[in-house]
Amino acid sequence: MHLLEVRGLTKHFGGVKALEEVDFRVEENSIVSVIGPNGAGKTTLFNCLTGLTRPTKGRIHLEGADITGSSPHRAVRLGIARTFQNIRLFREMTVLENVLVSQHLRIRSGLFGVLFRNRNFLRDEKEAVERGLEYLALVGLEGAADVTSFNLPYGDQRRLEIARALAAEPTLLLLDEPTAGMNPHETSEIMEIIWKLQKLGKTIVLIEHDMRLVMGISESIIVLNHGVKIAEGPPEAIRKDSLVIEAYLGKGTLA
């Protein structure tokens, strides 16, 4: 069963073709990496999937339903959550509050409950806190719940982004360079986290530059170059693909 199906996805910014007729499918509960040189259109792809930019052309289907051009908050409702390449935490909120915000859609009690603090409201809040702490534990941040998030060390901020995305309870999780700027030890920790997420039944698509991580974790790899998909397949196949080598190393070195 395909969880995500992208057909003919195209995005032009003025004259710049950020994405051109990109097709791919993501199997449920799989780990897929999107790689490619800088400016290949990877983040634009994520932005299209999460509704931050509207594609020029093409269709995006999630669990069979067409979700093309839905707004960001609707994309979350439909089950897509993401992290950002340049960290976008709620800086002045505590770590716990960050994961509480993501449970926005889940908490149902309305204004009445808020004003009178009735049983439903209190139960909702209690559950949200408990669940939030579970997500923090998953990424190893349970001890930092009350820290203001901008005071977290850099690596922990990246983990918190993952926990925050997770707390929105997506079926499809998009991670934009989750290990950027991390040392090998931290990177392998992130790798563990991603495996844990898979065990929880999540489907994961990640953008990565760290080839050891990509090759070690991905079931399938999509390679973009200048907005065009130039290869797709399991790690072993990608490693040998001449087009991919050319894209990374440049023409001429191939001969």
Binding site: V76, I107, A168
Partner: peptide, 21 residues
């Protein structure tokens, strides 16, 4: 409540807030 949190989140990072729903 969730409303207050949503406001603060929006103040801190609009794109981040929209991407958590």
């Amino acid at each position: 409540s969730k409303m207050g949190r949503a406001w603060i989140a929006m103040r801190e990072d609009e794109i981040g807030a929209s991407s958590v729903g």
